[in-house]
């Protein structure tokens, strides 16, 4: 069997002495799209921060292609794994083109300058994410949807094997949500780019992910295909609310319908 691209083994992590996630254990195979879901405070962000190495595990390991990420240099990691954070410091008004080219940073040495090849890669990624028309605009002038696509272009310019996204659709309207998720799936198919994302929206998770990890109170509550994970029993147990799960008539993926509390008795 192939080594999984990401192998999370018995992970426990948190802040100070407080454990936020415990014994989290899952793996993601090459070419898949995996979603991490769960209610607020379930530990999604903490798990994401351990995987992206922003915090150290208290126990357990995160392995990338069999290598313990804790032992990888930042540059080595950045050549393999690209991360789309939820927040970004936008103090300096870089142009979109310069911003995307920063994705080449892990590949070029301190004494080198950007080569023709680097420029071409950045150019190509901007075309892939359809932001090539914006290349001379400043990043501070972009709309939310444009900024997400530019960030994605920068991440792709890293030529990663694994793409990690932290709630890529928050702050976006439904049109832009679908646009970004379609783009992620297109890249996944065309480049065989393994993608793991933290998602808030269960329906989007059901629509776009091959597999889901449902967290509850810092532990894995369920993992598997969307059909396996997004059952009304799982969701009601974890989110403490009543839902109805139907099948999306076109995609056949599970669709969650919310029920207000005063209608729970029916």
């Amino acid at each position: 069997m192939n080594t999984p691209i990401l192998d999370v083994q018995n992970l426990t992590a948190g802040y100070g002495a407080k454990k936020v996630i415990q014994d989290v254990d899952f793996r993601v195979e090459q070419g898949r799209i995996a979603g991490i879901i769960g209610p607020n405070g379930a530990g999604k962000t903490t798990l994401f921060r351990v995987i992206t190495r922003l915090i150290k595990p208290m126990a357990g390991e995160v392995r990338y292609c069999g290598k313990d990420t804790a032992r990888m240099a930042a540059r080595e990691l950045a050549r393999a794994v690209a991360v789309l954070p939820q927040t970004l410091a936008l103090g300096f008004d870089f142009t979109v083109a310069d911003f995307v080219r920063m994705g080449r940073l892990p590949h070029i040495g301190r004494w080198q300058s950007l080569q023709e090849k680097d420029m071409e890669i950045a150019e190509e990624m901007m075309r892939n994410t359809e932001v090539n028309g914006l290349s001379n605009r400043g990043i501070t002038e972009l709309s939310g949807g444009e900024l997400q696509r530019v960030l994605l272009a920068q991440a792709l310019a890293q030529e990663p094997e694994l793409l990690l996204l932290d709630e890529p659709t928050s702050h976006l309207d439904i049109g832009h949500q679908v646009e970004i998720m379609d783009l992620v799936r297109k890249l996944n198919k065309e480049k065989n780019l393994t993608t793991i994302m933290v998602l808030h929206d269960l329906n989007l998770a059901g629509l776009y992910c091959d597999e889901l990890i449902l967290l509850s109170e810092g532990r894995i509550f369920a993992k598997g295909t969307p059909a396996e994970v997004l059952t009304y029993q799982n969701i009601e147990a974890v989110y403490k609310t009543v839902v109805v799960v139907k099948e999306n008539p076109i995609t056949k993926s599970p669709h969650i319908l919310l029920v207000p509390k005063d209608k729970w008795n029916r």
């Binding site: 992206t52 954070p85 970004l88 410091a89 920063m102 890293q158």
Partner: peptide, 13 residues
Amino acid sequence: ALGDEKAFHLGVE
């Protein structure tokens, strides 16, 4: 300039 975390994701400590 993009923040310490984004910098780290680009391989800069």
